[in-house]
């Protein structure tokens, strides 16, 4: 079948430009910020490493919530799967850090497959409840299987070998932090690529209108399940990084609380942009660090107040606010 079009009169659309350079600039900015953290806060590298690990959790959550529109309060199940897999592998004798990260990613992806396979059978509120149930089950499983996981005492005694056989994980956490920043930047760049691909566009389409996508002849669930697997790999990498850097895996890494915190980080930073996940994690962790030092009993109250302020004043998150100020409004387009 041919569309009858007068080809002579078609003014060809101009080539696309600009988009890729903005992404490169953004990625460079994250790398520079990471390096700046190394020099500005040499005494807080352990905290900053945790930021990079949790940023990956928030990124993974953004893929599912922000790009697919699937609400979940159980994302820590995937983070914890990666953390425990890396921890157990390390205790069992795999000490090469990059292998441990890979093990964490694979375990996270497998957990993502399970979680997606269950969650995608429901919609809306039922889906959200399923996500909570899954993370609680993971939590209970980690608690009960104490011979492998250490139960409520946590899995301790991880001795990670030096990176590339050269850079040992030192007491100040320099190696761990730099590894975290490099992995985070690499993951971020890869995800920018994923969300800009036809697959990423398909996910955004499903988020907005699954009926439209079906009437275009595409099944919805396999696409979402694929995103769950990718999300699991990212969260699992974050979990493994947390395990490597702290050399201990606790039950809190597979908790409902961490899942909820990740969602708070994402909302603070802005949903559906990837940048928001990182911005939100930094804000949340900085807030926790500073405010809990001032008032250890009420810092969560302050986070709650901040969250309400952000949701009302900047519904697209603080990252979205920055992007709006940064991008000059062009003629004929909304900023």
């Amino acid at each position: 079948m041919q569309i009858e079009a007068d080809t002579r009169s078609i003014p060809a659309l101009p080539k696309h430009r600009g988009g890729a350079w903005r992404d490169v600039a953004g990625i460079l900015l994250i790398a520079v910020a990471g390096a700046a953290g190394y020099f500005l806060f040499p005494d807080s590298l352990a905290l900053l490493t945790r930021v990079t690990a949790l940023a990956m959790l928030a990124l993974s959550l953004d893929l599912v919530v922000g790009y697919c529109g699937v609400a979940t309060l159980g994302q820590a199940a995937l983070f914890g799967a990666g953390a425990y897999a890396a921890g157990i592998a390390c205790v069992s004798g795999v000490t090469e850090p990059l292998s441990l990260l890979l093990i964490g990613a694979v375990a996270g992806a497998a957990a993502g497959l399970v979680m997606g396979g269950i969650m995608l059978r429901a919609h809306g509120l039922a889906q959200l409840v399923l996500s909570i149930a899954i993370v609680q089950l993971f939590h209970e499983a980690a608690n009960k299987a104490s011979s492998y996981t250490g139960g409520s005492d946590g899995l301790a005694g991880l001795t990670v070998g030096p990176l590339f056989g050269i850079f040992a994980f030192d007491l100040w956490g320099r190696t761990a932090y730099l590894l975290g920043v490099v992995i985070l930047v690499a993951v971020f760049a890869a995800l920018k690529f994923v969300v800009a691909s036809p697959f990423g566009m398909m996910c955004r389409g499903i988020k907005e209108d699954p009926i439209r996508i079906r009437s275009m002849g595409a099944f919805v669930s396999p696409v979402l399940l694929k995103m769950f697997v990718i999300s699991g790999a990212v969260a699992g990498t974050g979990g493994a990084l947390a395990a490597i850097s702290t050399q201990v895996v606790g039950l809190d890494s597979v908790s409902f609380e961490l899942s909820a915190n990740a969602l708070v980080m994402l909302v603070l930073g802005g949903i559906g942009t990837l940048y928001g996940a990182i911005v939100g994690t930094i804000i949340f962790m900085a807030f926790e660090h500073v405010v809990s030092a001032i008032n250890p009993f009420h810092w969560m109250t302050m986070v709650g107040a901040l969250l309400i302020a952000v949701v009302i004043a900047a519904p697209r998150g603080l990252g979205g606010l920055v992007a709006r100020l940064w991008t000059p409004s062009r003629h004929g387009e909304r900023p």
């Binding site: 690529f193 691909s197 036809p198 697959f199 990423g200 566009m201 398909m202 275009m216 002849g217 396999p222």
Partner: peptide, 20 residues
């Protein structure tokens, strides 16, 4: 339309191979 054409060709859920 790009998404629709790619979907028709069974390529819309690919990650590699940009769509433009």
């Amino acid at each position: 339309l790009i998404l629709t054409v790619l979907q028709r060709e069974g390529r819309a859920s690919r990650i590699l191979g940009g769509f433009r």
